[in-house]
Amino acid sequence: MDLDLRKLRYFVAVAEKLHFGRAADELHIAQPVLSRQIRALEKDLGAPLLTRDSHGVTLTDAGRQLLTDAGPLLASAHAARRRVTVAARGDRRLMVGFRAGVAVTPAVNLFAARHPDVLVDVQRIEGDDQAPMLLDGRIDIGYVRPPIDETGLRVVPLYTEPRVAVLPAAHRLAGKEEVTEADLAGEPLVWHAGPSTQPTRHPHPNAGYRARGVDETLEHVAAGRGISFLARSATVFYSHPEVVYVPVPDLAPDEVCLAVAASRNSPVIDDFFAAAQAAAEVTAECGNYAMWQRGGETAAQ
């Protein structure tokens, strides 16, 4: 039997709140109706999903598994609906998401030379938004930085860049031309990755304080709550009077990848991938952002 997406949405609401009344209020339906839909879903699947007793609602093993699988399923359905709506309107538009420090303009300029009829819009995204926004269709293509959950995605490495230490201006190493990881051992760290970050990716064991986005990171570093690490491109896009950037040559480089939902098959998306890869090659040859930008604009003419 096919899985009913409406029942699945109802189940997710109950599973997240573990309370039928609150889930019914969120869904704007009567609680008895919700209970009947959940029982019908359990019958469809041939397995109990929830345990209901005087202590409340808990998930069974089958319920926990369904909750894990439900997110990508519902996101895929939402994205399919959005793409059909866009196709029906005849829109020629790409929404490109990008992480802080990534320059999208060179690729957009190259792409526009081949597809002048396609509007390319851009949107800044954070680490914890990368996979969800691709899967639910809010962005069509993403310039992403690992770590990222690649489930349901096609992820292609694009380029790497050195990382720098982000230090308070009064830090003992702020005046150095470069530092090593050993120099920074034991420093408290303001960590700016998404919630999926794995401990093995932390630069040192003191990683703990997490900020969302570069702006928050700089504010916390300036306040003396710790140091941080960013891709070198951040030094072009972000500055702060109480923060300095110092190269760390022995630190593992930062990686930028292109990502798209695995279900997306489009010549237009393939062409944007090609433009992004060509722009990245210009970046590698030029060696700095200013030349990268000029190279991308020149190639598009």
Rank of each mutant, 00 (worst) to 15 (best):
V236T: 08
R81I: 05
G97T: 05
R210F: 02
R294P: 10
A131H: 05
E255D: 11
P195C: 13
L41K: 05
G63D: 11
V118A: 04
S233P: 04
L230M: 06
V86K: 11
V155Q: 01
A252S: 13
A107F: 07
R172C: 03
F237Q: 00
Q198P: 00
M291C: 13
A207V: 03
D117T: 09
V246D: 03
N288D: 15
A107L: 07
D254G: 14
Q130M: 05
R145S: 00
G226N: 02
A299I: 10
Y238N: 02
N109W: 15
A231V: 01
E187T: 07
F11C: 07
H19M: 14
K17D: 13
P188C: 04
M291R: 10
P195I: 15
A231N: 07
A113C: 07
G21D: 14
G142H: 00
Y159P: 01
D117M: 10
A185C: 09
V102I: 02
F11K: 07
R93K: 04
P162Y: 11
N265A: 04
H19L: 11
H115E: 12
V57P: 12
V104I: 10
V108H: 12
N109G: 15
V102S: 10
R64Q: 10
E126V: 00
E255Q: 14
L41T: 00
G226I: 00
V236I: 06
P147R: 00
E42T: 04
L5Y: 08
Y10I: 10
D215E: 12
R89P: 13
R124L: 12
L45T: 05
L167A: 09
S76N: 00
H171F: 07
R212E: 14
Y289E: 14
D129C: 09
T235K: 00
G186M: 11
I29Q: 03
F98L: 15
E281A: 03
F20W: 13
L8I: 05
A15V: 01
G194P: 09
D61R: 15
V268I: 14
E150S: 08
D4F: 01
V120W: 05
R210V: 05
P205Y: 04
A13L: 02
A207Q: 04
C257N: 00
I148D: 04
A174C: 04
I141P: 08
P203N: 07
D121V: 08
P249H: 03
A174R: 03
K176L: 09
A70H: 06
G152A: 08
A100I: 14
A13P: 07
R163G: 11
V256E: 06
R225K: 00
T200L: 13
T160K: 09
P48M: 06
R163C: 09
A75T: 11
L74Y: 03
P247D: 08
D121T: 15
A279N: 06
